[in-house]
Design a protein around this nucleic acid. Sequence first.
DNA 1: TGCCGATGGTTCATTATCCGAACCCTTGGT
DNA 2: ACCAAGGGTTCGGATAATGAACCATCGGCA
Lengths: 259, 259
Amino acid sequence: MGTVSKALSLLTYFNHGRTGIGLSDLTRLSGMNKATVYRMMSELQVAGFVEQTDGDRMYRLGPQVLRLAALREAAVPILSVSRRVLRDLSDETGETTHLSLLQGSQLNSLSHAYSPRHATKVMMEDAEVLTFHGTSSGMAVLAYADPGFVDAALAQPLQAHTSETLTDPQEIRAQLADVRSAGMAQSIGGFEADVHSHAVPVFGPDRQVIGALAVAAPVSRMTPEQTHGIPAALRRAGAALTHRIGGSAPADYPQDSAA
Amino acid sequence: MGTVSKALSLLTYFNHGRTGIGLSDLTRLSGMNKATVYRMMSELQVAGFVEQTDGDRMYRLGPQVLRLAALREAAVPILSVSRRVLRDLSDETGETTHLSLLQGSQLNSLSHAYSPRHATKVMMEDAEVLTFHGTSSGMAVLAYADPGFVDAALAQPLQAHTSETLTDPQEIRAQLADVRSAGMAQSIGGFEADVHSHAVPVFGPDRQVIGALAVAAPVSRMTPEQTHGIPAALRRAGAALTHRIGGSAPADYPQDSAA
DNA sequence: TGCCGATGGTTCATTATCCGAACCCTTGGT
DNA sequence: ACCAAGGGTTCGGATAATGAACCATCGGCA
């Protein structure tokens, strides 16, 4: 691995639970030498990718990432496009919706929308890592990912979020086949108990899956009517999002015949 | 310069006018060897910081920056960043400073700092609504807001806080032109008699104005020295704040020539 | 058709750069 | 006064970055 990759990998240790990391912690987390980490963080700091707080000397992400994100949006307005789609889908279903995108080998939640219809709702946080095996979004992505990618994802230790989480690679592969034939993944209590979520894949211009669009509802609210209406609305929204970002579904994706 | 810095410097060539750059262009822009640029971009690509389009092989910023930006937002609410800027500016000028941010269609004061240098000082309260026409902060924001936003703001009844407050939309628009050419707004007794305040706009990552940074001093203390020193310090502080929150000024904003 | 220039991508010997064990300095707890 | 832990620094040896030259492909263009 090159020096640049190592330096950038340091940034992956930041998340919602760890917005600031000290030099020693970062050394332990990365397994690299302290001097190495220090030099890399110094370079990242000069570039504005991280900054150090004044009191404790914790590192945190710097302002430069905001600039880059704004430029990325200017070039590929996935987030701004998705916001409308998410809003409409939340309005239509009355439930929480969210978009997650593949970033390298991990799936990150990046945008969400709530519906004001009900007092109780599923809460979401942006920039969180989603597991492939334990979420409907993850399964929707895996179902349309390269075989090699699936192998790599399932080769890692599969943690059970709840008692409902599937962790046996064989069972997961069997379910992926179901997802492919339905064009949609579904998870009842697989990530958090009491949450029933549906997800459809989102495709890029090269017909590769780039992420997933999902609806998450409390199990208690999944009436027969919702059980029918949510998948229908989600399918439409997914197709719309894929289309609006210039993507197209692969030939074997079950197309909405009414489209 | 280290390898990491060089690699990251490649990202600086992306801007609103150049959202996609080819390998040869990037080589010319950076002055580095083509093989070097290629290797670095490959590493950045694996990390998700850039991606290559399928047709032409232009590089553009990748989805990973979105994740980092979301985390930065979560980690650094703009207020905590502004507190240091306000403190430094108060120390430097010896006067009261405050930050106001656009929230929807109204401007709210959100943070302030006092200087211990003088016994008399302008007092501030956080979370107060500032009028656009009657405060230097409001004028600084309006001067860089969308035309439609300005129209809406001036269409409302314009109350006079003091006898000095401008309330004629025509006169206000004329003054906004002055603010634009100076890059700074100024109000002598416009909100409260006896208060002379200066304000500069603060910009977000999308070059939109998001608020204003201001210095408020008693009229009696505005010596010729202060009349020169406060605007200079304020300009610097405004640029620093805009930068530290990842923002950038629009092209037509009068830049500090000594920067 | 073959030539031309421009582009993206690759190779490999040289050497600049990075690495890491060990060290220093400061802080906070006891 | 001591200790442990954190941030930061040093310097010779190991490694990874470098760049001139090369290949492959593409799109004009006579």
